[in-house]
Design a protein around this nucleic acid. Sequence first.
DNA 1: CGTCCACAGGAACATGTGGCTT
DNA 2: AAGCCACATGTTCCTGTGGACG
Length: 416
Amino acid sequence: MDDGDPESGSLNDFWGSEDPIFDRKELLDIDLVPTEERIIGRDSEIENVASSIHPAIKGQSPRNTLIYGKTGTGKSLVAKHVTRSAQNYALENGTKMGRAYIDCTQTKTETRVVINLARALNEPEKTGVSIPVTGLSTDVYYERFWSILDQLYDVAIIILDEIDKLQNNEILMQLSRAGEAGKLDSCKVGIIAISNKISFKESLDERILSSLQDREFIFPPYDANQLREIMYNRDDAFKDGVISDDVIPLSAAFAAQEHGDARKALDILRNAGELAKDEGADEVTEDHVRNAREKANIDRFSQLLEGQPTQIKASVYALSVLAEQHSEREEFATREIYEMYQNITSDSALGIETLSQRRMSDKLDEQVFLDILGQVERVGRGYSSGVTNYYYLLEDPAVVQAVIHNDSRFSELEKN
DNA sequence: CGTCCACAGGAACATGTGGCTT
DNA sequence: AAGCCACATGTTCCTGTGGACG
């Protein structure tokens, strides 16, 4: 609008400036499935998974497979890589192989999983089957799904990631027995189930278990050497010579301390680069890595909390106020938090309803699950009870409140 | 030692939303 | 247009618990 702006000259310099630190930052994204030579230290895992699904190449039944391992141990990576490679090979050999990936943290109910699978594998112009996003009964979705599989594929491989997040295991039942139950005529189905909890097995039906347990692999955490190699393999994310020698070994050491999580390693590395860039430094140093590790924790926390609904912010806020008022204590019982929560929600111009204590305690539990709050159980405290839950903040109350005040509805609250 | 308190968390039930089918 | 359907979000009711307290 204002032309002749005296700033525009310097801004032009800015737009034209090159990133002094990063070259191909996307390489530091954990979800990127690298080409095979970039997958480090998972050779035998790749081999194992590949051998499970090998029969699928010729259109025969693949074996169902269960993969365990902590976060950031390459489970999804290996599953995606192997199945993609198999699909390409099968295609060249005249086998129609379908392949679908479901993240069960996003898709938790049986129906949603079927819908997503069907939509992922469907080709409406060939099958003439339409899969509405919602509106049908689960049975109908299943029928359409089976029909799609039979029409389009000789064999389908389905990856269910974070399977322990599923509300119930009916979908596994259906998928693993589809052939025997006569739901499918020609198409074979293979399941690759991924979980980070070994205890997941206990919640499984005997029949599913026997079919899944067929092939079962545990992915060990990466050790510091492997983490280092993973990062060296992706170091062309940075400009040449920008990272000093100790940066990667130190990031690897930090990540190794936190259960060998490759995701964390890459996060630290990326954050270190960003810190250096913000400072205008031309080199990433050991100090950047140390700060990045701090920052990564707080960032994760803030983002998580920021994205939560208002009711949850209100309950967490209540806890933060309590923590502020009683500097000598950290943990507070549900009832105390609820009283404060009532003050907050009834009073102000927040414009939200005051929920029942039952409901609020569910919200708090949810936050414990997300690692926003911590929880301890205590017996027989104060005036009688069986067990009482006590909650505490995992970050400084000031940090928590700062994040919540970012929400415009809460910003007024500050004054009280 | 029995009674009572007050909490955790499961279960049944209610309501609202979005959307398909016929 | 009427009837289903899945599902999120809440509420109410209820059972089990284990220390406090008489």
